[in-house]
């Protein structure tokens, strides 16, 4: 089948029910997207499909033909994503870092749809697990991105 990832088209020889996560990690060697649970519980595998945060471990590739997938590897090619990463660095968010690819993707999709999320909206959308407990830093970084004046531009 054909799959568009980070703007590049790939021809793949995989069973239709293969999760996007393992196509990314094993077939395409893009290991920035992490496996944490394989059961839609942790969010470590979050990628963007047409701008929406999606958990790639429970996304059969079959349903992705025609869709455009964005992974952490390309996050900085996107202006908003770039600013999310900058805020992550400014607030020194990651600890072990394992959950952070997913956190950054989730935050980017939240900010794309809601440039100025309230705490309540952040609570509602940022449901990825972080065992290191970087939650307060994540919240602060997200607020920082919205306070960024250039923010309206996307």
């Amino acid at each position: 089948m054909e799959l568009t990832i980070n703007g590049v088209q790939h021809q793949l020889e995989v069973e239709p029910d293969t999760p996007l996560l393992w196509v990314l990690r094993d077939d395409l060697g893009m290991t920035g997207t992490k496996y944490g649970c394989g059961l839609a519980q942790c969010g470590a595998c979050t990628v963007l499909v047409d701008g929406q945060a999606v958990r790639s471990c429970v996304t059969p590739v079959e349903n992705l033909s025609g869709a455009s997938v964005t992974t952490i590897e390309a996050i900085e090619q996107d202006d908003l994503g770039k600013r999310v990463v900058a805020a992550w660095v400014k607030y020194q968010v990651p600890q072990c870092g394992y959950c952070q690819s997913g956190q950054v993707m989730a935050a980017t999709s939240l900010l794309r749809q809601h440039p100025h999320p309230t705490d309540q909206e952040i609570d509602a959308v940022m449901v990825n697990l972080c065992r290191c407990g970087t939650y307060n830093a994540i919240r602060a970084a997200i607020h920082d991105v919205c306070s960024d004046p250039t923010h309206g531009s996307t």
Partner: peptide
Amino acid sequence: KRLDIYEKSTG
């Protein structure tokens, strides 16, 4: 600043 933050924020 921590040395590993940027790499960890970009996978």
